[in-house]
Simulated scan of single mutants.
Amino acid sequence: MEYKVINLLQTRELKAKFTKSEESILDFIEKNFDKIPKYSVVKLCEEAYASQASVNRVCKKLGFKGFSELKYSIEQDLEKMESSKSLSINNTFFYIENINFQDVQGIAEVIKENRKILIYGLGASQITASYLQRQLLYLGFQAI
């Protein structure tokens, strides 16, 4: 999922050079990311101990016309994050509800009988496969 602001703040891979005060504004925005859409520029300046001119320079160096556009983009990022989180939660519930425990019991019995297990994982699944292999080795199974 492509975020406009949070990726810029976290990676800091920007062409523009930032002064120390501008860096502190970026740090404040990153730490208070979810609160920024509710802030006015004056409140941000008070909380971040910065001037309005510095805030506007930061916004322009980030590629926005001003603080209002930055706020709007942060709000969009937050909505994308929330929808992504909800989608992940819904997918998890879907998979849990659709587990066929009778099949799982059958697989467990086959594993108990053979005691030799080949596990395959690629990419992020490799981490889970390695963990499962280690746990099965602890239990006395031959797992590769």
Score class of each variant (00 low, 15 high):
residue 91 N to G: 00
residue 46 E to F: 03
residue 32 N to C: 06
residue 86 S to I: 05
residue 32 N to M: 08
residue 100 N to T: 01
residue 18 F to R: 09
residue 74 I to K: 10
residue 4 K to A: 01
residue 114 N to S: 10
residue 31 K to P: 05
residue 70 L to P: 02
residue 4 K to G: 00
residue 103 D to V: 02
residue 89 I to W: 09
residue 132 L to C: 04
residue 9 L to R: 12
residue 18 F to A: 07
residue 102 Q to L: 04
residue 46 E to K: 10
residue 138 Y to A: 03
residue 24 S to C: 04
residue 137 L to M: 11
residue 60 K to C: 01
residue 1 M to R: 08
residue 26 L to P: 05
residue 105 Q to L: 13
residue 5 V to A: 11
residue 133 Q to F: 04
residue 63 G to H: 05
residue 47 E to P: 03
residue 18 F to H: 07
residue 27 D to M: 06
residue 118 L to G: 04
residue 66 G to H: 06
residue 31 K to N: 13
residue 136 L to E: 12
residue 16 A to E: 15
residue 86 S to N: 10
residue 71 K to E: 10
residue 57 R to E: 03
residue 53 A to G: 02
residue 69 E to W: 01
residue 134 R to L: 07
residue 12 R to K: 07
residue 22 E to M: 03
residue 39 Y to T: 03
residue 77 D to F: 01
residue 113 E to R: 14
residue 107 I to T: 12
residue 124 A to I: 06
residue 73 S to N: 14
residue 128 T to E: 12
residue 98 N to D: 14
residue 136 L to K: 11
residue 47 E to K: 13
residue 44 L to H: 05
residue 55 V to K: 07
residue 11 T to Q: 14
residue 87 L to R: 13
residue 108 A to C: 06
residue 142 Q to P: 04
residue 3 Y to C: 02
residue 70 L to V: 02
residue 5 V to K: 12
residue 65 K to C: 05
residue 34 D to I: 06
residue 47 E to S: 08
residue 66 G to R: 05
residue 110 V to F: 08
residue 134 R to I: 00
residue 7 N to R: 12
residue 38 K to M: 06
residue 130 S to T: 03
residue 71 K to W: 04
residue 9 L to Q: 08
residue 91 N to H: 07
residue 100 N to L: 06
residue 33 F to A: 05
residue 31 K to E: 15
residue 56 N to C: 00
residue 73 S to H: 08
residue 128 T to V: 15
residue 94 F to M: 09
residue 64 F to A: 04
residue 27 D to A: 04
residue 126 Q to M: 12
residue 48 A to Q: 10
residue 71 K to H: 02
residue 119 I to Y: 12
residue 64 F to T: 00
residue 6 I to T: 07
residue 140 G to W: 09
residue 72 Y to S: 09
residue 2 E to I: 01
residue 43 K to N: 09
residue 142 Q to Y: 07
residue 139 L to N: 13
residue 65 K to N: 11
residue 10 Q to F: 07
residue 44 L to T: 01
residue 14 L to K: 03
residue 63 G to N: 08
residue 110 V to M: 14
residue 24 S to Y: 13
residue 90 N to V: 01
residue 104 V to Y: 15
residue 97 E to V: 00
residue 54 S to D: 11
residue 133 Q to K: 12
residue 8 L to K: 10
residue 91 N to P: 00
residue 125 S to M: 14
residue 36 I to K: 14
residue 128 T to G: 13
residue 132 L to T: 01
residue 13 E to G: 04
residue 102 Q to E: 15
residue 76 Q to A: 04
residue 2 E to P: 08
residue 99 I to N: 15
residue 12 R to Q: 09
